[in-house]
């Protein structure tokens, strides 16, 4: 229980570093204010994320965690509030020099081979042509996929594809990696193996990571801090700290405190999930 900390930004201030990502009063509303169809998705979110920190956003469906991730990445401009990354304000424009995205499903372009996909990503980033192949092969080898460079994405299994997708996010050499349920399409076992790989890789690269997930075990296993969000409108309900060094081994899952934290998260989330379901039901019932 002592891990639960309600003070926002405890991790960053405790470490005494300038935050890598600073979120101040971010509010996102869809539709006009007061309109019947308007939805308040995020309500006054403030959060600091330290360099090298692994933060999970956890919450019921529709709580706006993906929206928040898109706002941090500059794919969305929030209704109000601001996000600062590496000292510069993100103003609804992507910052490919600082931030890389890994999306829910593989976003490898199906009309290019794996290596071509990496080249394109690096080209978009402005990496000189001569360096692209080396960077790409390094990243592929790092996830054990070096032999598949000339394959098309559909020739790979879902798990392999997502592994490559992850590698693409890592190879672009940004300081920040935003991951939107990257393992959602995978089965439980592959998820755990990939999560373990991710933990190992990240311990090496020292990237700052914001990770959206539905899975409680995944959140505990990977994160330094878990931000638990409320059902719509999304607010920070509480923050749970996980004090365990990276890289994490599967043994961590067997420790009693792993289970305790998982149960604690479930208790925190259960009410929110019920509330989210009720909201959904009302919207469907009255919406027709």
């Amino acid at each position: 229980m002592s891990e639960a900390a309600t003070a926002i930004g405890a991790g960053a201030t405790a470490a005494g570093l300038a935050p890598a990502i600073s979120i101040r009063g971010v509010t996102q509303r869809f539709g006009a204010v007061g309109a019947a169809q308007g939805v308040l998705a995020l309500d006054d979110i403030s959060l600091d994320i330290a360099p090298g920190e692994f933060v999970c956003l956890l919450g019921p469906s529709g709580c706006g965690k993906s929206t928040l991730l898109n706002i941090i990445g500059g794919l969305f401009k929030p209704t109000s509030g601001e996000v600062t990354v590496a000292g510069k304000r993100v103003d609804g424009a992507p910052r490919p020099d600082e931030i890389a995205f890994v999306f829910q499903e593989s976003t490898l372009f199906p009309w290019y081979t794996i290596i071509e996909n990496f080249r394109i990503a690096l080209k978009f980033q402005g990496v000189p042509k001569s360096e692209r192949d080396d960077l790409a092969m390094d990243a592929l080898k790092a996830v054990g996929m070096g032999g598949f460079a000339r394959h098309y994405p559909t020739q790979l299994s879902v798990g392999m594809r997502q592994r490559v997708n992850m590698a693409r996010g890592i190879c672009v050499r940004t300081n920040i990696l935003l991951m939107d349920e990257p393992f959602a399409a995978l089965d439980e076992q592959s998820r755990m193996v990939l999560g373990e790989d991710l933990s190992t890789l990240l311990a090496k690269t020292g990237k700052t990571i914001v990770f959206v997930t539905h899975s409680l075990a995944e959140a505990v296993f990977l994160s330094d801090r878990i931000v638990v969000m409320t059902a719509r409108p999304g607010r920070v309900k509480t923050i749970v700290n996980v004090n365990e060094r990276h890289p994490r081994a599967p043994d961590f899952m067997l420790e009693p405190r792993f289970g305790e934290m998982r149960n604690e998260l479930f208790a925190l989330l259960r009410d929110e999930i019920r509330r989210a379901m009720a909201l959904q039901r009302d919207a469907d019932g009255g919406g027709a």
């Binding site: 992507p94 910052r95 931030i99 995205f101 976003t107 372009f109 978009f124």
Partner: peptide, 21 residues
């Protein structure tokens, strides 16, 4: 939409998006 968003997040220009996506 996913590919367009991915291209945007990787910093593709509108010409690059047209050409590659």
């Amino acid at each position: 939409e996913r590919y367009l968003r991915a291209a945007r997040s990787m910093g593709a220009s509108s010409l690059e998006t047209f050409r590659h996506v």
